[in-house]
Design a binder for these strands. Structure first.
Length: 505
RNA sequence: GGCGACGUGCCCGAGUGGACUAAGGGAGCGGUUUGCAAAACCGUGAUUCGCCGGUUCGAAUCCGGCCGUCGCCUCCA
């Protein structure tokens, strides 16, 4: 089966045919770095990282670009509020964002261009637009002239007439209310570090132009897929299309993929919504990664189809955590049985030609697994249905556990059964890795163990030893004292009880 | 006001014309197993997919209307 994806431009599921056979260029709109990133900012990168892995699995050579918008009004405002340097703020937030991406296993981004480092490209693009008559200078500002782009509104299905109903406000020096800034002149109150020299005086780029400049720089005038959150369709992506296509005279992106927005209490998670601000603490990436870990968050995001809204809540996170643990337990079970880990790439997966080498009574199980592999990949081919694909991963897990139970794998030493199950689990892991799941074995020790755990455990042993002494089981009592001693903990009995100390104290 | 999305069992969530007698997960209940517990496994749950009409041999799935929730039109992943 071949890949179909839903294209916002046509409002249809389309067969995916890359512009250049075998190669795919993807541009995803990244964050504006002015406040700590929240769960919503992880959705796009996780989905597109997983999508890239899937495309690579299918044999495409993929270039994935995610931008960082580090020149923007909001960064200036926030820096002023925090009384810090604009560049420093942007860099700090960017570092946090990159750290979160690493924890989420987002490894597929080839370039993360920053707006501030592409000012010449942006200026060049604006100049071309002015020369073509699609943009005009007004004071120190430059505006895009939407009347010059016939198909303005083709992405968001908006008609020009509809627009004027709500906001009649004709911006300072704008010819049409929908005209948007390509270049904004510097204001006297703004800090010096946010200004750049341009043919129109000192200033900085408008919001949409950096994405046009950077996407075309890295992927060419026309590229395969442009992605982002659904809230960007208008005006951001609409404006990107307008300015890019006016400039080059060519189609901009062939497919537009928009992910659903994350909600909390049915409302969109947003940095700028004051009501959301109060709940934001538990939705920042740093908090979520600390409490749940990267794989769990990734699993959570991919458990919903990308075009749907994700309903975030702690109870749902906990529910998902439990289901994810089921996979870990299965992997542990196989490791106990075979002394090999399903994470180990040297262990074989299940393949069709292998069927005959196993006894006939196991053929049904093998068939089962092979069917699931196909089902899994079919799901991903159908508009990248990761939710459905993860559903089949659960079926895999159930099937393997059942096979082990039925063959009493723990009590009957049947290496065929055990290693067949291991191979099946290896297939599961390999399939999951197409989405970037189960790439690495999670650490066994809990990072969240409280500091007092060590003391509590010693206390427990001391109490058990007291019970042993009461039962006159002095052999056990002495053993506990001796073994603790070799661990550097001395136990000293007093009439009132037992006192323990670390030997080095 | 304009544009758009969504409404599936207790919760989450796939399915978008026939294999749906609606996947899967979490919770619940009953069972197998177990010294006990946990885990695992088995069984159980929507005669029904917001409501009302229509198209069709056939609809959760297409069309129309209504209700509800949310998003965009100002900054947003």
């Amino acid at each position: 089966m071949s890949l179909k994806i839903y294209n916002t431009l046509t409002n249809e599921k389309e067969l995916f045919v890359p512009i250049h056979p075998g190669k795919v260029g993807i541009y995803l709109c990244g964050p504006t770095v002015y406040k700590e990133s929240h769960i919503g900012h992880a959705v796009g990168p996780v989905i597109f990282d997983a999508f890239k892995r899937f495309l690579c699995y299918k044999g495409f050579k993929v270039m994935l670009i995610v931008n960082i918008t580090d020149v923007d009004d909001k960064i200036i405002d926030q820096a002023a509020a925090e009384n810090c340097n604009v560049r420093e703020l942007a860099e700090r937030i960017t570092r946090q964002y990159l750290d979160a991406m690493a924890q989420l296993g987002v490894t597929g981004i080839d370039q993360m261009p920053k707006a501030s480092e592409h000012i010449p490209d942006i200026i060049n693009l604006i100049e071309r637009l002015i020369n073509k008559g699609s943009a005009y200078v007004s004071g120190g500002d430059v505006y895009f002239d939407v009347m010059r782009f016939e198909s303005y509104g083709k992405l968001s299905n908006r008609k020009m007439e509809d627009q004027t109903g709500r906001r009649e406000v004709l911006g300072q020096g704008k010819r049409h209310p929908n005209d948007f800034a390509l270049w904004k002149s510097a204001k006297p109150t703004e800090p010096a570090e946010v200004g750049f020299d341009s043919p129109w005086g000192r200033g900085r780029p408008g919001w949409h132009i950096e994405c046009s400049a950077m996407s075309m720089k890295y992927l060419g005038d026309t590229f395969d897929i442009h992605g982002g959150g659904m809230d960007l369709i208008f005006p951001h992506h609409e404006n990107e299309i307008a300015q890019s296509e006016c400039c080059t005279g060519k189609n901009f992106a062939k497919y537009w993929m928009h992910n659903g927005l994350t909600r909390f209490n049915t409302k969109k998670v947003s940095k700028s919504d004051p009501e959301m601000q109060r709940a934001m603490e538990k939705m920042t990436l740093s908090h979520l990664l600390n409490t749940y870990g990267g794989e769990m968050l990734r699993f959570f995001i991919l458990s919903t189809h990308y075009r749907r809204p994700i309903e975030f809540s702690d109870t749902e996170m906990e529910s998902k955590q439990k289901s994810l643990n089921g996979f870990y337990r299965l992997f542990d079970r196989l490791e106990r049985l075979t002394s090999h880990s399903p994470y180990d790439e040297k262990q074989p997966t299940l393949h069709k030609p292998q069927v005959e080498i196993y006894p006939e009574k196991h053929h049904a199980f093998i068939q089962d697994i092979l069917v699931m592999r196909n089902e899994y990949l079919d799901m991903l081919d159908d508009d990248f249905n990761t939710a459905g694909a993860i559903g089949t991963l659960f079926k895999y897990s159930n099937s393997i556990n059942r096979f082990l139970d039925q063959n009493q794998a723990e009590t009957i030493q049947d290496e065929t059964v055990r290693f067949l199950a291991l191979s099946a689990a290896r297939s599961l892991v390999e399939d999951a890795r197409v989405l970037g799941l189960f790439v690495e074995k999670p650490p066994k020790t809990s990072d969240h163990a409280p500091d007092h755990l060590r003391e509590d455990l010693i206390g427990l042993l001391v109490r058990l030893r007291a019970d042993a002494k009461k039962d006159k089981n002095f052999a056990l009592a002495d053993r506990i004292r001796n073994e603790l001693s070799t661990l550097g903990i001395s136990l000293v009995d007093h009439p009132g009880g037992t006192q323990w100390t670390f030997a080095d104290r």
